[in-house]
Amino acid sequence: NGLSFTGNFVKNAGRRSVYMHSVNYNTTPSSPSIIANNMIAGGIQNGTVGDGMYLNFVKHLGIYHNSVLLDNAASGYAFAVTTLQSRFLDVRNNSFTYLGGGNGYAMAIGASIQDYTSDYNNLYSNGKLARTGNTDRLTLTDLSGGYNAAGPLDLNSISQNPMYQSNTDLHLNVASPLITNEVPMIAAVTTDFDGQNRQAMTAIGADEVNVGPRVASSDLDVNVYPNPFRTELKVAIKGAEGMVQLTLVDMMGRRIFSQQVDAANLITLQPQVQLSEGVYMLQVTHNGTTSQYRVVKQ
């Protein structure tokens, strides 16, 4: 049987949080071993050089839906795979983040690696974005332009702050771009880190957040103002007939209040609970379609 390294939480490790060397299970490119739904969080203890997930001499691996954050190493890689002997790697739907503030990278790939697929990831760094061979790739455009035998990389990937709960808790806030930039679910990974079912279009990384029905677009024309607000929100909706459901949730996904209103009228929302200052999400649901709007309470 192949390797299955899934659902692990690694925090504040030493030189390398996850290190795999000479892994070549008797699997095939069409049925790889799986590294999925792992959360690798926090800093490297020596604060100098560190790596989140480091793979060397590995073959036939599917690396899916991992969330990796490296945040206090002066240099290193959130994700790295090295040597020509590493082949048949499928790297999709992961979030690799470097926030060390130094000479580090979200992702690094060794020279001339072949049979390597990388796409639908989130690569984010306050150092350098990626390194392929000896070449720094500072933007996704640089990375997708082609890389030796591997071909173009990360054509559908994004580069945004993942908005985790904290640097050691890699569950997502409901406004995270890893939710709003959904990716196709991988057949081998139907649940998330917590065992929650994934949707056909699912969040990037290890955490799936169900914040209500999701759609790629909405026919509604919704205007929410003032934003920021103090005591009340006004909601003007065009393109809807009948009743709509308005739901306000906080950044932990907790519902603050919900009510049905007539879309034909200008709607004034005055929450009957004391709201703390901060960011909330207003969900507007009509005929099974939900749109979300970021609002700020002052």
Rank of each mutant, 00 (worst) to 15 (best):
L70R: 02
L84G: 07
G100E: 02
R131P: 00
Q85K: 14
V58W: 00
N167C: 03
R137P: 11
I158G: 02
D142F: 08
T82W: 11
R92M: 03
T141D: 05
L129W: 01
D169T: 10
A149K: 12
L140F: 09
M107H: 00
G133L: 05
A149T: 12
T82D: 11
D51Y: 14
A73M: 09
I63Q: 01
T48C: 06
D136C: 05
T141Y: 14
S86D: 02
G145W: 12
T141S: 10
G127A: 05
K59D: 11
T97W: 13
K59H: 10
L89Y: 08
R87C: 08
T168S: 00
L123H: 03
L138D: 09
N66P: 05
T97R: 07
G62I: 04
D51C: 07
D90V: 12
N161F: 15
Y54E: 01
L69D: 02
N167L: 04
I63V: 06
G146L: 13
D71Q: 02
L84Q: 15
D51H: 13
D115Y: 15
Y116P: 00
Y147H: 06
G47P: 10
D119C: 07
Y64F: 06
N56R: 15
N66T: 09
G102E: 08
Q160S: 05
D154R: 10
R92D: 05
N126T: 06
I113N: 06
A74H: 11
F88V: 02
L153W: 12
G151V: 08
S118T: 13
H65W: 06
L155S: 15
T83M: 02
S157V: 09
L140V: 14
N93I: 03
S125C: 01
S112L: 09
G62E: 11
I109R: 06
S75F: 01
D71P: 04
T117L: 11
N167Y: 14
D115I: 06
G50N: 01
S144V: 04
T82E: 15
Y116W: 14
T117A: 11
P162R: 01
N93S: 03
Y147K: 00
